[in-house]
């Protein structure tokens, strides 16, 4: 399988704190790779580095050989690397449908001026975005809420909307930061199915998640971080048997990795 994303020797310092310390791994095409680790291990920071929200102190990230780290978020997004946020992040005063429509920004063929004038291209774009938004909403089970103002959604649906926004950008790699947080078992299982379906549609998926049963179920491979360092990498069964991982989780969350 082809290498899609390559993280090499990436480090991020915040003053004296090394949030991510010399981490390297690679992601294959159409893989579901999860990054796990205790709270504060540097998982979100790692995602922000990959999606160019943060500039690495050293090291770099390459997408199909091209460097994408240290640029700007909108440029990384244009190259196909899009993240969702750990906190629920949506355009809260827009309708659910408008949230997804606006996220088609990268697909627009018309220029801003074209949209101002309402040219044929702009109208075609609008129509295409509307249709695609409806498909995405259906895929995520949000169709019935399409016209609801986003801030009124219940928590589980907000997460789904966050993912819908990510999907609308038509990414080649989607980075999901704790997509199952705050969901009950049924909702989580439905989302697990969802994520699998996304992969079948050709997406490569990076995931940060604390829900270990879900992670073990969904992931092809895992990367484990502790205090900013990569302590293990492997398939779910390898990780579950890994001494270092068990140690890192011991005491606080030893049950959490499904032992």
């Amino acid at each position: 399988m082809a290498e899609m994303l390559e993280v090499s020797g990436i480090t991020k310092r915040f003053g004296g704190l090394v949030a991510v310390n010399n981490v390297s791994f690679s992601v294959r095409e159409k893989e579901i790779l999860s990054v796990i680790g205790p709270n504060g291990a540097g998982k979100s920071t790692l995602f922000k580095l990959i999606s160019s929200f943060l500039r690495p102190t050293t090291g770099e990230v390459r997408l199909k050989g091209e460097r994408i780290s240290g640029l700007a978020p909108h440029i990384a997004a244009r190259r196909g690397v899009v993240r969702t946020f750990q906190e629920t992040t949506i355009f809260k005063n827009m309708s659910v449908r408008d949230n997804v429509i606006i996220a088609h920004h990268l697909r627009s063929k018309a220029s801003l001026f074209g949209f101002f004038l309402g040219t044929g291209t702009a109208k075609a774009d609008e129509a295409a975005f509307g249709q695609s938004a409806d498909e995405i909403l259906a895929l995520l089970g949000l169709s019935s809420l399409a016209n609801e103002t986003a801030r009124n959604l219940p928590h589980g649906h907000l997460r789904a909307l966050g993912i819908a926004i990510g999907l609308a950008t038509n990414p080649s790699i989607l980075l999901l930061d704790e997509p199952f947080a705050g969901m009950n078992h049924d909702e989580t299982m439905r989302m697990v199915e969802m994520v699998r379906r996304l992969r079948e549609r050709g997406l490569t998926i990076l995931l940060v998640e604390h829900d270990m049963p879900a992670v073990m179920k969904i992931s092809d491979r895992l990367v484990v971080l502790n205090f900013g360092q990569k302590i293990a990498e492997g398939t779910p069964s390898e990780i579950q048997a890994n001494e270092k991982v068990i140690e890192a989780y011991l005491g606080s969350e030893d049950e959490a990795i499904g032992l």
Binding site: H74, A77, F91, H105, L112
Partner: peptide, 29 residues
């Protein structure tokens, strides 16, 4: 009126409501 009721208005709103998210969907904020 035209600005606000075209897609540009929606983009401006997206900035107003969440700049980080706007840049994550590829908007050059």
């Amino acid at each position: 009126y035209r600005l606000v009721n075209s897609r540009i208005g929606k983009l401006c709103q997206s900035l107003q409501q969440n700049e980080e998210l706007a840049s994550s969907i590829g908007v050059n904020i």
